[in-house]
């Protein structure tokens, strides 16, 4: 665990608390894409199946359980919110899910020579979760571009997700240099994902940082 990975994880953790705070204190899920949240829940469930078979550390275990539980709760709250107008949540998620699944079937880290059938299915689902996470933010980005009255807290939520991605990139540079650690699937998908946030940070700069306090 290096400092970049840790800061990235903490920023990811903060993003959950920001979104939960928005949902609980404003009692409104306006501006929150149910589709993006459902994709994140799918990402975490598919990626953290190894909870059942591999123990890395208590840190890893507890974070994984929290990520799954928190994203399930967020999906539940947004899906059951009566005041949510999801008219602008119009992204066609099948265009994200199907290509990610197809790509995962062909580009993954399976080792059929060792490990059982179930472990290799987990590798395919792990790759699927990496690809899906890279693009899962797109429905939320589309909503932010369409909605005029995006609340600052939603923007801060997105910013903390972007910081999480940026620090994971630094983490991979560090690990490649000091540990020889190199997972091309995670790194390439991570770069794509971080580039998508560049679009958001332009919006963030224009709509939040340039907006004078009133």
């Amino acid at each position: 665990m290096n400092i970049f990975r840790f800061v990235g994880d903490m920023s990811h953790l903060a993003s959950f608390f920001l979104l939960l705070a928005k949902l609980i204190y404003t009692k409104s899920s306006t501006g929150v894409s149910l589709k993006t949240q459902a994709l994140y829940l799918t990402v975490f469930v598919c990626r953290y199946l190894d909870l059942l078979v591999a123990f890395v550390s208590w840190y890893n275990e507890l974070m994984k359980i929290f990520f799954i539980a928190a994203s399930a709760y967020i999906v539940y709250v947004v899906a059951t919110s009566t005041r949510n107008s999801n008219a602008s949540d119009t992204y066609r998620v099948e265009f994200l899910v199907i290509p990610a699944l197809v790509l995962a079937c062909f580009v993954n880290e399976t080792h059929w020579s060792k490990g059982g059938w179930s472990l290799n299915v987990m590798e395919i689902l792990w790759a699927f979760s990496i690809y899906l996470e890279a693009v899962a933010v797109l429905p939320q980005l589309k909503m932010l571009h369409q909605l005029e009255d995006t609340t600052n807290i939603t923007m801060h939520y997105m910013a903390s997700l972007g910081i999480y991605r940026a620090f994971y990139l630094l983490n991979w540079v560090y690990r490649l240099y000091y540990e020889g650690y190199w997972h091309p699937i995670a790194v390439v998908a991570g770069i794509v994902q971080t580039l998508l946030y560049a679009d958001f940070f332009i919006l963030y700069y224009q709509s939040v940082l340039l907006r004078l306090p009133s």
Binding site: R5, R47, V56, N60, F67, N171, H183, A186
Partner: peptide
Amino acid sequence: SENDDEHDEL
């Protein structure tokens, strides 16, 4: 290293 096969990130 041997740990390269494991996914230790979140």
